[in-house]
């Protein structure tokens, strides 16, 4: 039981995909202009992670080793297509805002990485918790980045005006701002953890 908890929480903290492993950056940066977009992308990616991890873990004994990567990709792509179609039908606005980054979840290194490193070796329950932990960690990181960008770049949070009499810093709404925020965040986290270690 303890081990399962560990599988869940490592994705949020010590092995956070974005801040620690520096994986899955394209969507994290491209869609994080607003909290709503970030949340949508986070949930979509979590769903794909969960689905593909479960299936891969279930059939892991039947996949020949040589062609495992193509098999993983097909399974992942199936779930991505499900998300793509569902999003187009039920959240067309979000689908438009996320654009080509929804199909690109297929090549999100986190998803394939978890399939290769975890789901094809472990049982279903552990893989599920691993996927959930990674997904939550990813979503959390996205929320953090998009909250900073939306607040500084637009003065709002979830669309509500927070900072009044504030000239929004457009830089954070544009591409360079995303790179800057993630650079400073990773640097800051490194700094904090090095401090904790030495203390």
């Amino acid at each position: 039981m303890k081990k399962l908890f560990k599988e869940f929480f490592k994705g949020i903290g010590s092995e956070n995909p974005i801040f620690r492993l520096v994986l899955g950056l394209c969507p994290a940066l491209a869609v994080s202009t607003s909290v709503v977009n970030g949340l949508g992308m986070g949930i979509a990616a979590t769903f794909v992670l969960l689905g593909s991890n479960i299936i891969i873990s279930l059939i892991r004994k039947f996949i020949p080793d040589q062609i495992r990567i193509p098999c993983f990709i097909v399974i992942i792509a199936t779930f991505v297509t499900i998300v793509e179609l569902a999003m187009k039908a039920y959240a067309p606005e979000l689908s438009k805002a996320l654009g080509i980054f929804v199909p690109l979840i297929v090549v999100n290194c986190i998803v394939l990485g978890r399939a290769e490193a975890f789901a094809c070796k472990e049982d279903v329950l552990a893989s599920m918790l691993d996927a959930l932990g990674m997904g939550v960690g990813f979503t959390f990181a996205l929320l953090l980045i998009s909250a900073i960008r939306e607040l500084l770049g637009n003065g709002t949070f979830l669309g509500f005006l927070i900072l009044k009499n504030f000239d929004p810093i457009l830089y954070f709404m544009l591409a360079p701002g995303a790179l800057l925020v993630i650079g400073l965040l990773i640097g800051g986290i490194n700094f904090l953890s090095s401090k904790r270690r030495s203390a």
């Binding site: 000239d167 810093i169 457009l170 830089y171 544009l174 360079p176």
Partner: peptide, 10 residues
């Protein structure tokens, strides 16, 4: 350049 991108009006 940061200023130019952030506050083009000013």
């Amino acid at each position: 350049a940061f200023l130019q991108i952030s506050w083009p009006v000013y």
